[in-house]
């Protein structure tokens, strides 16, 4: 396969990525030789017990952290070996990110939070498109409200809207429903699924919740820094069962 063909087919590609923290005796291997490709338009969930390296995986894939070895490609652009300023520009324009909590700047209104990446990148935003994004995440609060006045679910919807507003190649989500109650979590996940389907958006979600993972097309299992399994189209019970028996391969 040529590189261009790779770029067309895979939104994100990680090749033999390893990440070690610390030096000498205190060195900790968070990721060991991970190879994974995310097809465009796919919604993938990464699951694993604590210490499996899933957050590290996410950070490396998004260009937030540099791997110790290996290659990471975003579309046809190589992320590894780039300067911080280039990575920042890439993050701003071609990647969307949703954290578990603390996603929004308290000083800005909802609308200002959503368009923040565009404004900092000096790009104009289309009000029609903005309205469409707001509609698609089913956000029903006035746009001039401040985040501290929103509920947890509403805050996450705003965060998702911000992640989508730049029409990124990938949206990364780090435990997006971890701080929400079950009902709100399901609502947010359903909205996320709908948006991903409607727009053909590639998404990668880290989670420990089998119910959340079941909303994705594919669930990838990480343990001790390696990919140890994959499930496609499974229901929460099967996912939970697979999680329980992760060590027994």
């Amino acid at each position: 396969m040529t590189a261009v063909a790779n770029g067309l087919e895979y939104a994100v590609r990680m090749e033999s990525v390893a990440k070690t923290y610390g030096k000498g005796d205190a060195a900790v291997s968070a990721l060991k030789d991970v190879t994974l490709g995310l097809r465009r338009g796919s919604f993938t969930a990464i699951m694993g017990p604590s210490g499996s390296g899933k957050s590290t995986f996410l950070h490396c894939a998004a260009g937030l952290d540099r791997p110790t070895s290996g290659r990471i490609m975003l579309g046809d652009t190589e992320l590894t070996g780039r300067r911080e300023s280039e990575l920042t520009a890439l993050r701003r324009e071609r990647i969307g990110f949703v954290f578990q909590s603390y996603n929004l700047l308290d000083a800005l209104t909802v609308e200002q939070n959503i368009v923040l990446p565009l404004r900092l990148g000096n790009q104009r935003f289309d009000p029609v498109f903005l309205a469409e994004v707001v509609r698609s995440v089913e956000l029903d609060v006035p746009l001039d409200r401040r985040p501290s006045k929103l509920s947890g679910g509403q805050q996450q919807r705003v965060a998702i809207a911000r992640a989508l507003v730049t029409r990124p190649e990938v949206v990364f989500l780090d435990e997006p429903t971890g701080a929400l109650d079950t009902r709100t979590a399901r609502q947010v996940l359903a909205t996320l699924r709908q948006t991903v389907d409607r727009w053909g958006q590639t998404a990668l979600m880290v989670t420990h919740d089998p119910v959340a993972a079941s909303y994705a097309d594919t669930v990838v299992f990480l343990a001790d820094g390696r990919i140890v399994g994959e499930l496609t189209g499974a229901n929460p019970e099967r996912i939970a069962q697979r999680m329980t028996h992760l060590g027994e391969w």
Partner: peptide
């Protein structure tokens, strides 16, 4: 710090 970290993560470069 957290506010700046968020900015750095999603959109802002050191110059910003």
């Amino acid at each position: 710090r957290r506010e700046f970290a968020l900015l750095r993560a999603i959109a802002a470069g050191p110059g910003h």
